[in-house]
Amino acid sequence: MPRSAWYKFPPDTLPKLRAELEQRYPTLHLFERAGFIELLGSFPIEHGGIEIDRFKIQILLPPDFPKAPPFVWETAGRIPKILDRHIYPASGNCCFFYPDEYRLLYPDGMSFFDFIQGPMRDYFLGQLAVEAGQPWPFGQRAHGKDGAFEFYEEFFGVKGKEIVLNYLKCLAYETLKGHQWCPCGSGRRLRNCHMTELSQLRKRVPIDIAGGAFKRLGEPTASVKRP
């Protein structure tokens, strides 16, 4: 049986979302378009009762939302559509985080309002800072593979691309046995090293994510320079 779209069940999902939008974001409007939920309008960036600015946007909620994050475009041509402004040049949408990050940190996804008030608002705050000639206020990832490695180093709590790849390989393809060598490269047996950490990571990192990342990051292609 094909899985029904996320917004069909419970049946009041869309009416509720519409009603809350009308209250909280009167300039964002929701439409149903060919299986996708689309929002059009403008998004205010407010703080302490002051509207700092507002971005004209389009949001697309994919059929597997909230497991998969929303796609967002800035539609007034205000943000240059370049990597250094964290826009995917080909598709023109905003890049809030390294994609695996969303799936690993929010396994059940985020609610729509948590998403737009969290990652989406942070991103536009960052754009405002950059427009004002300041650095990215919350830091930024390197483009391409380097940024992915940065994320996994943080997430695993390790240093070095080799180690990240070892961890990914271990999480994707191996059953953890105490006598195997620890992927951290210490030269010790797993049971005497990172067994606990890896057992816990195994619960948090689905095999398809680890395997996918291992394949992507393991391929020997040049990555883009840091901005």
């Binding site: 990597l83 040049p89 985080f97 919350f138 830091g139 940065e150 994320f151």
Partner: peptide, 10 residues
């Protein structure tokens, strides 16, 4: 609040 760091790739 530990905001995410923006990313991008080709």
């Amino acid at each position: 609040g530990q905001p995410h760091k923006p990313y991008a790739e080709f």
